[in-house]
Design a protein around this nucleic acid. Structure first.
Lengths: 200, 200
DNA sequence: GTATAGTGTTGAGGATATTGAACGCGCCAA
DNA sequence: TTGGCGCGTTCAATATCCTCAACACTATAC
């Protein structure tokens, strides 16, 4: 309290909002794991109140405590801060290698990562090998999705409507409707799609 | 102080020595940067006493403070903890991609990382393109080095002695002697070398 | 020898993180 | 309605961090 300390308060910087994305990062990870604050507290041996404070950026936890918290779900300190730094840096461009890739049999999703889980949409490319089929998927999420076909052909079923789309064609529907994607041709089909709000 | 707390003390675990490699990690980084505790303190705006305590694992710094400390030299939180986790895990095998690679013109060093700076030696492969030349290097470090040639041929000068080695040949000398490596052939030369104690 | 500046460490103090228990809220069942 | 149980937040008290200032040591200069 000397009055002219240059950088005494290491916490609480609402003006610029630079650092301390730690709280949002933890909250996003916890919610992605489907855990409540109290469940995470029980798992990690940290009090739920502390988790609440961390998520609100009302405290800067010690390294030891944060490590304990992260033991509640599979996440390393370096992985945690990699996401924090990615979020602080707010990257705009993404190389193909740093996308989150998910392979389900003949189907491949390659999407932009969202380390804080705060984005309004989720954009990805989907690649369907010949014969690929999502099956009748019933999504419980209250979201909408749409996309454009880039190459190949794809049969899309939404509710009672069926259509086969080719390059340049597009679709848009409510995710709560039962829907199915099938590649009936012998050519790889690639499309770019978006979903709002993010479903996972 | 209830007497039967299961995991109250998150710090101070000398018995197993599991976590809290944080201190050694920080010390190694600081020393590799050639900084004293006080110099790092001035650069980062943290008190030198705190840096001392962290390096001795007598405290677990808050995330905010550790971030401040690391701003003293170029190091991110995720990079810091990546080294911590590597050290805690004490890896035994190293894929080629995770080696520390340094390129100096026609010469390439690929060495095993030492996140804590505590190893007694440093082992690496050295690749000399045709025409590569280290020049007369005078090392100030009080160490010894040696190695075996794997392929190609290399001319080595140590003090007043000169020799050209081929596959299977070896060398060993005091690093304080002036020495020079030259690839005079038209073939890439590769060798595996060791140095004790680590020179950098 | 003293002085000055460097190093890493330690102790007392105030500031802050962390706990344990409360609070207020929403939801479902009796 | 009441009761119970889940959630996330917040309060007072304690444990811990963090600073400031001192200490002990080494080295170089005078």
């Amino acid at each position: 309290m000397s009055g002219m300390c240059d950088s005494s308060n290491i916490l609480s910087e609402p003006p610029s909002g630079e650092t301390s994305v730690v709280g949002e990062r933890l909250r996003a990870l916890r919610q992605q794991s489907g855990l409540s604050q109290r469940e995470l507290a029980r798992r990690s041996g940290v009090t739920n109140g502390m988790i609440s404070l961390i998520e609100q950026n009302k405290t800067s936890p010690s390294v030891a405590l944060l490590k304990k918290v992260l033991s509640g779900f599979p996440m390393t300190l370096s992985g945690f801060f990699a996401g924090v730094e990615e979020a602080e840096h707010t990257p705009v461009f993404f190389a193909a290698q740093q996308l989150d890739v998910m392979n389900n049999g003949l189907i491949r999703f390659s999407q932009i990562r969202d380390p804080l889980g705060k984005r309004l949409m989720q954009i990805m490319t989907e690649t369907y090998q010949p014969g690929a089929d999502t099956g009748e998927t019933m999504l419980e999420h209250d979201s909408e999705e749409g996309g454009f076909v880039i190459r190949g052909r794809i049969e899309i079923t939404v509710g009672h409507q069926v259509a086969t789309l080719g390059p340049g064609d597009a679709y848009y529907f409510d995710s709560r409707l039962p829907h199915r994607f099938r590649n009936l041709g012998d050519e790889v089909c690639e499309l770019v799609s978006a979903c709002a709000p993010p479903s996972f």
